[in-house]
Design a protein around this nucleic acid. Structure first.
Lengths: 137, 137
DNA sequence: TTATCAATTTGTAACGATTACAACTTGATA
DNA sequence: TATCAAGTTGTAATCGTTACAAATTGATAA
């Protein structure tokens, strides 16, 4: 069944699969619009009435430490989260506030200036107006 | 003299050149290590004893609106500022916490997925260990 | 000069996302 | 069924940033 599947996935990544952790990871996988802690908390609070916002923070921190999620700081007011840990870019539309993923050719970015540096993480944040909003204005 | 030079520069960018604004812009130009509001405030407070931290915030907001400075949100705890508004990447060393600038070939990043999008701003944040720290460990 | 008015600066209070922390709960093991 | 570590919860504290109202400045006109 589903929960065992997610449970095994968490266990395989060194995370004890509690009910809360399974539900939060499941939510992240199914909601790819880069939700905030607030969004995740509100969405799951109906299923898990005892859920605490601290648990959401703790759980996401564990996910990041274990490498199965990443933080997206494209907003300066709140952090967003993504279960897709491949290197990819994020575009934020200043009009509809939607965040789009886009592919990036990692090799082409790695600058000559960083050739002797160890790079563990790469974040690319682009800002502007998306195709949909351009056409609607 | 210097102050007229900066004053003219601000005026040419639609910014009324107050004493505070001139000093803050001058500081940004001369201190390229991407200072925080706290750093700027502490550095200038000795020259301008009446300086308020709110003024530093206000001034930087004006600079960004007028396009002569940019915010660097490479830290999740505090915002840093840069008077270099060319598109370029920032690398943060997790060991010494220094932030390095690096050149980026803008064209090579612009993804096929964004071809119908208007992109106004591009931020690239890399994280890892710098050359110096690697050699010292 | 003096009056006027808008722009700028200042200090304090409020805000809000995040973290610290202690108490409580859970679940595995013996 | 006792024990103990790990996980969860709620509250309080932290701290960078913003809101706001009062004070100051500087340009302009009478």
């Amino acid at each position: 069944m589903q929960e065992n599947y997610f449970g095994d996935f968490l266990r395989n990544n060194g995370i004890k699969p509690s009910f809360q952790r399974i539900k939060i990871y499941e939510y992240l996988l199914q909601n790819k619009e880069h939700p905030t802690v607030e969004t995740i908390y509100n969405a799951l609070n109906s299923q898990i009435p005892t859920l605490s916002k601290t648990t959401v923070y703790n759980t996401l921190k564990v996910f990041i430490e274990k490498g199965i999620a990443m933080a997206i700081t494209i907003d300066d007011t709140e952090v967003r989260f993504d279960a897709d840990v491949k290197v990819h870019g994020h575009f934020k539309c200043e009009h509809c506030h939607k965040i789009y993923d886009f592919e990036v050719d990692v090799e082409s970015i790695s600058s000559e200036a960083l050739k002797d540096f160890d790079v563990y993480d790469q974040q690319m944040f682009f800002y502007g107006v998306c195709k949909v909003c351009k056409n609607n204005s």
